[in-house]
Amino acid sequence: MTLIRPATSPTDLEAVRKLCWDYRTHLASVSPIEAELTETFYPVPKYAALMDALETEHARPQGIILLAELDGSPVGCAMTHALDPQTSEIKRVFVAPEARGHGIARKLIGALMDQARTDGYSRVVLDTSVNLGPARALYANLGFSERGPYQDTPEDALPHLLFFEAPL
């Protein structure tokens, strides 16, 4: 059975941090370009600092951290934070390889969108790699449209990234 819920306890947050590190490792393994982008955007010291600040960066009521469990084990995470009063950004959607195929990423994103709508945002945005085909297909299937960058992005990274937006 799949359960999607807010990560609130220290145990939950530790599970999310582990999943986020697994996500970083996964991204770096996709291709040499992904490895370079991962090191550019999330060098280990910067990522470690981000992991230490997760519950602040994605605090309620401007954001949320979700944990996905499959048969009681943590297998996925996703989170949001505010970019501005109308825009919630989705970050670090990850499902462990052994849990894929259960619709967990779809449930995580749906729950994030529902929460952002409840919180009064009018749109959600996210970015992903050109090389993450299944993620791109999922976002399109959930009603996201491609758009231009919504934040400063290094010019040399732009050909490798896609930006998406969905109204709420």
Rank of each mutant, 00 (worst) to 15 (best):
L37W: 03
E39R: 11
D52A: 13
T38C: 12
D12C: 03
Y47G: 05
D22A: 11
A28C: 04
A53H: 05
Y42R: 11
D52L: 15
A49V: 00
E14P: 00
L27R: 14
K46A: 15
L19G: 01
L37H: 02
K46Y: 02
L37A: 14
W21N: 14
E36G: 09
A28K: 03
M51L: 15
Y23L: 15
F41S: 08
S9M: 11
L50K: 09
E14C: 04
A15R: 06
L27I: 12
T11K: 11
C20K: 08
L27K: 05
D12H: 02
V44M: 10
E14S: 14
C20G: 03
Y23I: 10
S29K: 08
L50P: 00
S9C: 06
A48E: 09
V16D: 00
R24T: 12
F41I: 10
L27G: 04
A53G: 05
R24L: 13
A48Q: 14
I33R: 13
L50V: 14
W21L: 14
T11W: 05
T25H: 14
E36S: 12
F41R: 06
R17C: 08
E34S: 15
E14W: 02
A48I: 13
L13D: 08
S29W: 00
P45R: 08
T25F: 08
L54E: 02
T38L: 07
Y47S: 05
D52Q: 12
T40Y: 03
Y23K: 13
T11Q: 12
E36V: 13
L13K: 04
A53L: 04
T38W: 07
C20N: 13
Y42T: 15
P32V: 10
D12V: 05
D52G: 03
S9H: 02
V16P: 04
D52P: 01
Y42I: 14
A48H: 14
S9I: 06
E36Y: 06
I33H: 03
Y23F: 13
T40P: 04
P32T: 08
P43D: 09
A49Y: 01
